[in-house]
């Protein structure tokens, strides 16, 4: 993809983010942080590429450590969000 296409996606996504986040109810701001934490670990994609590629042994091991770190966040972030959201109950 060329730089301008990527930049376009980025700028539009910033606007989407702005409106979606303002629509989040303040009562769920802590779960919002936990889940954004989990999804920002999509950086695992880069880590997987680094660890799967042949060519540089150092890069591979750095990638593997990054995979492990991002996995902590993915599993931990989604699990803790799920745990919090399960607590929110209506009256009665």
């Amino acid at each position: 993809m060329d730089f301008i296409s990527i930049l376009s996606i980025f700028v539009l996504a910033c606007f989407v983010g702005y409106y979606v986040v303002w629509s989040v109810t303040p009562a769920l701001h802590t779960p919002l942080m936990a889940v954004t934490n989990a999804i920002s670990s999509v950086i695992i994609v880069g880590a997987l590429i680094a660890s799967a590629a042949a060519g540089s042994e150092t890069a591979k091991w750095l990638g593997l450590v990054a995979v492990a770190l991002a996995s902590v966040n993915i599993f931990g972030g989604f699990a803790v969000t799920e745990r919090m959201l399960a607590m929110y109950k209506k009256k009665g």
């Binding site: 993809m1 730089f3 990527i6 996606i9 980025f10 996504a13 910033c14 989407v16 983010g17 702005y18 979606v20 986040v21 919002l32 942080m33 954004t36 934490n37 999804i39 920002s40 999509v42 950086i43 994609v45 880069g46 590429i49």
Partner: peptide, 21 residues
């Protein structure tokens, strides 16, 4: 990192999380 990899999922996520914070 999404820019470096040209990866849409990473760019969208980055923008969402960035605005959220």
């Amino acid at each position: 990192m999404g820019f470096t990899l040209g990866n849409t999922a990473m760019i969208i996520t980055g923008a969402l999380v960035g605005s959220s914070g």
